[in-house]
């Protein structure tokens, strides 16, 4: 077992997450994949060479209903998911879809170019592009000796 590894800090969390996922997946639940009682919207976060990608599942929501802000390394998306008002509460036989006001705040792992953030909507899937700042790339620091 290597004691010290030159790897990205996140890798360990990812390994742990995968292990936990694998454990959870081995448990047989009556509805294993049913997306219930979870934060809305569910988001996946990706990294590429030049940018971060936040992908959120927002079915039934249109672009103008989404509020997106980036400030101080924190990304916030919020909105309201309203269901048809003409349908009375008692008419529902089953209600699994999340509804009501929602908000998600996520801290970004590295400095991003806040001016260049862009987002697009497609079939209920929101993709937010968060380009990395040129500054955030690794910087060489010269080490000098002082013999005096």
């Amino acid at each position: 077992m290597p004691v010290f590894q030159w790897r990205h800090n996140w890798d360990h969390f990812r390994d742990l997450e995968r292990e936990v996922d694998r454990l959870l997946q081995s448990i047989k639940l009556p509805f294993p994949n049913l997306r219930l009682q979870r934060r809305f919207p569910a988001v996946n976060f990706f990294e590429t060479e030049s940018e971060y990608l936040l992908i959120a599942e927002l079915p039934g929501i249109v672009a103008q209903d989404v509020e997106l802000t980036v400030a101080g390394g924190m990304l916030t998306i919020s909105g309201d998911r309203n269901f048809p008002a003409e349908v009375p509460e008692e008419a529902y036989r089953r209600r699994e879809r999340p509804h009501g006001p929602w908000q998600r705040s996520l801290s970004l792992p590295e400095r991003i170019d806040e001016e260049q953030v862009s987002a697009e909507f497609s079939n209920g899937v929101l993709t937010i592009h968060l380009p990395k700042l040129a500054d955030a790339k690794p910087r060489q620091i010269p080490v000098t000796t002082n013999n005096e």
Partner: peptide
């Protein structure tokens, strides 16, 4: 395979099924 969350409600004409299928 993912199970999509659904709503079912009753109207005068019958039933309406609504499913979240993002993407």
């Amino acid at each position: 395979l993912v199970t999509a969350p659904i709503d079912i409600y009753q109207t005068d004409e019958g039933l309406v099924l609504v499913a979240d299928l993002p993407g």
